[in-house]
């Protein structure tokens, strides 16, 4: 009983990372559409647009922490301010190189953050995510 994920929003400033992540997600049969925002601001803008029906609303977001301009944490501050109608059915996954315990603990303070995973993204990780967030609901696994 698996569900197909219609739209993925990738928020990362690094083109190579986006390229790699897109490739990994593309290869996975459960993900249909991928939208890439190379800055946190663009991502916010996209989310607002999608709420107006101008574009497809993502059901899962992969958020990088370390970004120029607005970083992951600052994005989360803005994201929190968005209308619940937008955010309530979106899974927000922190996808970062950091394996810092501090970063992880900080992520826990945001209710809207659903998971915290380390790069690089892989098919296994995606499998794991679907299993965690779409079949067994509210079971957050500590890495």
């Amino acid at each position: 009983m698996t569900k197909t994920i219609e739209c993925v929003l990738l928020i990362d400033d690094d083109v190579a990372t986006n390229f790699y992540n897109k490739r990994v997600i593309d290869k996975h049969e459960k993900f249909k559409e991928i939208v890439i925002a190379n800055s946190a601001r663009k991502a916010l803008f996209y989310l607002l647009e999608s709420s107006l029906g101008k574009c497809k609303k993502p059901s899962i977001i992969f958020l990088d922490i370390n970004m120029p301009g607005m970083n992951g944490w600052e994005f989360l501050q803005e994201y929190k301010e968005l209308d619940e109608t937008i955010t309530h059915d979106i899974k927000l996954i922190m996808l970062t190189t950091s394996n810092s315990i501090d970063d992880y603990n900080k992520s826990l303070t945001y209710d809207l953050v659903n998971d915290f995973i380390n790069k690089p993204l892989s098919g296994d990780l995606l499998d794991n995510l679907i299993e965690t967030h779409y079949n067994v609901i509210n079971n957050r696994k500590i890495i």
Partner: peptide
């Protein structure tokens, strides 16, 4: 040290991912 290693690690992760691909 943290920031430096974090920033070093990020492209590395991408490299190893790309190699896997």
């Amino acid at each position: 040290a943290y920031i430096a290693s974090h920033d070093l690690k990020e492209p590395l992760v991408t490299i190893s991912g790309l190699i896997t691909l």
